[in-house]
Write a protein that binds this DNA or RNA. Structure first.
Lengths: 244, 244
DNA sequence: GTGCAGAAATTGGTTGGACCATTGGACCAC
DNA sequence: GTGGTCCAATGGTCCAACCAATTTCTGCAC
């Protein structure tokens, strides 16, 4: 028998019902991200549920990044909500060790390549101009400070993700970016980390401007490859120093 | 001044502290996924916090899919936890429409191709044998039931992700897989959905067995392309019928 | 009127205790 | 064994307070 033909029934779902009602409220009031939504106490009274139940529901939304609570101030909407949202919470067991970094880089290689290809397919003239702008800023920062600036570098990549037309690229890679930030705070001994990746930013841009998806994809792969090499170099150095 | 040099102090973070303590407990007891963790009441007593605080913490973990609560039974671990987990909650607005599905497919295309390539690089003889086994099961199911079986198909792909040596592939795609399941429950009018993708499963396997990363990557791209075509066909059909 | 310190109200965070609904095992009659 | 009933354990909900951070109001000095 197909086990899907007899799914488990849903008897009660108080907090789910609260969230559903809340979605309706946000839509009815046309609340925008940044606006404040009603007090927990008011919600509890209006929905005829306990404040505890309201809090559990809001805790779920907070965990999903949909809402932000500020004690003494209120609860604020952080993103648009709708009744047919799809939640995809990922928790990546990852450490600061070499293996974890390498694994996230493999994911990033896959996504970066695809985003660059899609970007080359879909970029309008205005999009290309914006990417060129970010590239200029990055290159200038590189020359004045003589080294990769993670801030401007990140801006450049974000522009590519945005132009790709698929917000998931930016969302997923942004989450991994946080992991890298945590990592880069522990320098690892490689002083010019990311230095080798610099020239590929311009070549990626040129292939995008030329509307060449395959070329852009190849250059993105090369860029990540240089980062992987840096990482391997750092790991080798670390291994060596620990043996001393 | 670098704002990172002066991080905000942690005056109170009760539920975060609870989760941290819980991570320690899971590690100390070497709890495996599926095992039951202590009662809310016991946790509250041991940690010297209110049961409500424990509940908020567990609600967060439940939202992240780390834990499952069963009323009358207990709270069960669903995944491995560690102190340096990376949470990546993605919420995609409007999941049943064509655009959202297409976007998740673009992500899957990127990851599927990379996973297939890595798999071809790293597969041992035993790994190849296991993939062959999954492929046989899938093909048999296809012939007896005359259609794609999402269950066996999924097993096949999972085997590839596992052999790729990077657990992140399986985790990310598994999350998206759930979205597709929800979608497939609303058939969309295309009866033989996924039918065209069938032959590519074997070709992917053959390239993996031949240790040809580029070939495996190309076949994976073709496979996803057929699914994208099915999706476009379904969307066109739907559009047509809504115009009538 | 202006500016500012302090009081007061607002709001999320926490606590403790109570009761309900579901689960799963123990026990029993058949 | 099958099917019931009972019962203890456990998560789900509720209530009524109080705490802590924030915002707003108030009143005084100038």
């Amino acid at each position: 028998m197909d086990q899907n033909s007899l799914p488990p029934i849903q008897t009660t779902a108080r907090d789910d019902a609260v969230l559903k009602a809340l979605v309706g409220f946000v839509r009815a009031e046309a609340l925008q991200p940044g606006e404040r939504l009603p007090t927990e106490r008011i919600l509890a009274e209006r929905l005829k549920v306990s404040r505890n139940t309201v809090r559990e529901a809001l805790t779920r939304w907070e965990g999903l990044g949909l809402v932000e609570r500020r004690q003494g101030s209120g609860t604020y909407l952080k993103a648009a909500v709708s009744h047919d949202m799809l939640h995809m919470p990922l928790t990546l067991a990852g450490g600061h060790d070499f293996t974890s970094l390498m694994q996230t880089l493999e994911i990033r290689r896959a996504l970066e390549a695809e985003a660059a290809a899609l970007c080359a397919e879909r970029a309008s003239q205005a999009d290309i101009a914006e990417i060129a702008c970010k590239l200029d800023i990055m290159e200038q920062a590189f020359h004045t400070r003589d080294g990769m600036s993670s801030e401007e570098d990140w801006e450049f990549h974000q522009a590519i993700y945005r132009v790709s037309g698929n917000p998931l690229f930016e969302q997923i890679i942004a989450a991994m970016h946080e992991l890298f930030h945590r990592f880069w705070e522990h320098p690892l001994g490689v002083r010019d980390f990311g230095h080798a990746s610099f020239p590929y930013h311009r070549t990626i841009y040129e292939y995008i401007a030329a509307r060449d998806p395959q070329g852009a994809r190849a250059e993105a792969l090369k860029l990540i490859a240089t980062v992987e090499d840096d990482l391997k170099r750092g790991a080798a150095k670390l291994k060596l120093s620990s043996q001393t």
